[in-house]
Amino acid sequence: MEKAETNFSVQKVKHLADLARIEFSEQELDELTSELNVISDAINKVQEVANDDVERTTHPFALENVFRKDAVGETLEQKSALAAAPKQKDGMFLVPQILAED
């Protein structure tokens, strides 16, 4: 498997911040970049022992086929679903204008 070495640049961190939808100031980006480079050295180590013959573990215990029967259960009332909404209208969540279509 190919190894990855990460050197975080401000530009890269900015791209990650875009993906993660967090606004940062220039100064915050600078700080974050240097902190991430310190962390990066610590985490690169995982690649040393991750050989191709080792399988991946997603779940601590190998469970499978945990299902639910297709039967209707409790639902939230509209009022309580909307109770915490920053804004609401006509039984719906009001969100600011969406610029890009999905």
Binding site: V72, E74, T75, L76, Q78, A81, G91, M92, F93
Partner: peptide, 15 residues
């Protein structure tokens, strides 16, 4: 287990 249905009042088929 929230119902899968069409045409209900908004935000009533949710858990």
């Amino acid at each position: 287990s929230a119902p899968n249905a069409f045409g209900a009042e908004p935000n009533t088929l949710i858990s």
